[in-house]
């Protein structure tokens, strides 16, 4: 396994993050976000590197990464769809979108399209309840979804 090294830009950003907190440990969430942006996936090697940079026990980093749903430890498709399934969105039609995603894209919750373009993850309340059903693609919010609108939105993600 080749060594995982943060870029110079990322290293400077880590210094900036550390200056905002009275303890090194408090920088863990922001540094994990940064690492995920930098490396795409928080692999075992990335997690170990984060632990080294912040002088934290690797087991502590493992525990934190596994606790939060937005930290990725496994490869996904190029774009991740987070489809909200909580009550308001469900009332507004999440299930019809699920049916559509399966028929049109052969995409089931937890699955990835054969071409590696999309991974579908079911999300709990995204705070888009008034304009549901809502989904996030990567970090972009899309709402008032219908099957047609889902097609339109997904076209933008190659």
């Amino acid at each position: 396994m080749s060594e995982i090294v943060f870029s110079e830009t990322a290293k400077r950003e880590i210094e900036k993050i550390l200056s905002r907190y009275p303890t090194k440990g408090a920088a863990l969430l922001p540094v994990l976000h940064l690492a995920q942006e930098e490396f795409g996936v928080l692999t075992e090697g990335v997690r170990a590197q984060v632990a080294r940079v912040l002088d934290l026990p690797p087991a502590h980093v493992e525990g934190v990464v596994s606790f939060y749903t937005l930290f990725k430890t496994k490869p996904t498709g190029r774009h991740v769809i987070w489809l909200c399934q909580t009550l308001s969105c469900d009332l507004a039609g999440t299930r019809s979108l699920l049916g559509h995603l399966e028929r049109r894209y052969s995409l089931k919750p937890g699955g990835t399209t054969a071409d590696g373009r999309f991974t579908l993850t079911m999300a709990e309340c995204l705070g888009g309840c008034g304009t549901g059903p809502a989904m996030m693609v990567n970090w972009d919010y899309h709402d008032r979804l219908t099957p047609e609108r889902v097609d339109e939105v997904l076209k933008k993600y190659d």
Binding site: T23, A26, A27, L29, L32, L54, Y68, T69, L70
Partner: peptide, 18 residues
């Protein structure tokens, strides 16, 4: 980073502390 419980104030503090 995705955890409803962090809206509970002491969980939130834990989360800031890393």
């Amino acid at each position: 980073a995705g955890a409803y419980i962090c809206g509970e104030e002491t969980a939130l503090l834990e989360s800031i502390e890393g």
